[in-house]
Write a protein that binds this DNA or RNA. Structure first.
Lengths: 226, 226
DNA sequence: AGCAAAGTTGGCAGAGTGCCAATAAGACAT
DNA sequence: ATGTCTTATTGGCACTCTGCCAACTTTGCT
């Protein structure tokens, strides 16, 4: 900054001097910083990315990060939330009376397409590589999964998702774990072809509904579960 | 432990003065520090636990941590590894010709017993709450899961695990995801009873082997999979 | 007791974080 | 255009934390 000579001083006369920095709309700057942070956090470990790095990447002063996001960790959590805007599991649209097979098959297909389009981002958010996770981060991911479970529940039956029996919801959450692991096997480890992972996800879901869930429900004999 | 100074004998006898600190065996001190680190890292977030905190908790100088473990992160990774000494999935002992149902049922039962005994530790290592995870940490967890998958593969057939077809291994890994999620539903979210989670894990595995896996293998049409 | 080996300490140098008062860009009224 | 007002943005200060190392202390051994 000290390099600017006094000539710049004449800013009040007709010639508009080149601004030293550009002033952006609040949301615009925020989004820009967030994007830079996301890239860096996806590439390196949390504590090997300094706020200085992020600021340099965004071409702003370090203090601005704190102005917009609070602490470094708050910024990081925002990055995670921004990643969670995308679905984290196969999710049906709705089941207008059609057979379960069809509904699920379509859901899985849409899920796979989403993964193909957002491979890197999804792997960073959920998969092995990429962002760091702790209890707080996990809570964010968890909420996304819970929403996904709601959709699956609605697809299986006409329950209002909120009053589904606990074991059904638990089974759907377990399927989420299954689906995430299978997706990683496909996207990252490449031990499955697209057709294979599709079969795995589709058939896996159907088996859980048809064979596993009944077994679970009959296991809750004495209990007052419902 | 911080209990050391309490034992100080009052008078400075003509004999040898009370040592200011106790000198421990290498492995002993190391284990002690590791234990303190594990507790703190399980309670708070990685970067809100300072090496000073850990040193104070262990009643040693901060420099000693670095002497034993290198950097703070190295210490953290050691904590994760120490947690991974325990199995991370239902794992069969061996299948001496008995039926698959029996083998799996026993494996799941042993798995549940392990979880009951190590609830807190396991949740910290794998479950939602507890330790932070990033790419490097995930690699450690991953290796543990891979080993678990080996055992499952060996249980299903007489394959040498290392030469099992890719889709089988992928299916086992997916089951691992399934099992972890189900276990969390039981241990933490309490949406399943013990009987229910047992049924879920057992029946889930059998269904994957009997129904899902064949579907996956028939999905690999053109490929030379076998 | 004296010596050597190894465990342990304490402090220093550098880096990173959070914060805030001052500054400057852009919008708006005059 | 010019002055004024709002607020986005900067730059630097105070503090904490990490990583490291030389010196010191304890313990085992002769």
């Amino acid at each position: 900054m000290a390099s600017a000579p006094a000539e710049r001083r004449a800013a009040t006369d007709s010639a508009v001097a080149e601004p030293r920095w550009q002033r952006l709309e609040h949301d615009e700057r925020r989004a820009q910083i967030l994007a830079c942070a996301r890239r860096l956090f996806s590439e390196r470990k949390y504590d090997s990315v300094s706020t200085t790095d992020i600021a340099r990447e965004a071409g702003v002063a370090r203090g601005l990060l704190h102005h917009y996001f609070g602490t470094k960790r708050d910024l990081y959590l925002e990055v995670v939330r921004s990643l969670m805007r995308m679905p984290s599991n196969p999710v049906p649209l709705q089941s207008p009376g059609r057979g379960l097979e069809v509904v699920i098959s379509e859901s899985v297909e849409r899920w796979l397409q989403m993964l193909e389009r957002n491979r890197g981002t999804w792997l960073a958010a959920i998969g092995g590589r990429g962002l760091g996770r702790d209890a707080e981060v996990e809570a964010i991911l968890d909420e996304a999964r819970e929403r996904a479970a709601d959709r699956l529940i609605e697809a299986v039956q006409s329950y209002e998702a909120s009053q589904a029996p606990a074991e059904l919801r638990a089974a759907m959450r377990s399927y989420s774990g299954f689906a995430e692991a299978a997706s990683v096997e496909w996207l990252e480890r490449r031990r499955l072809t697209r057709e294979q992972v599709k079969a795995l996800l589709t058939q896996g879901f159907l088996s859980i509904i048809r064979d596993v869930l009944p077994a679970v429900q009959s296991a809750s004999d004495g209990a007052a579960s419902r």
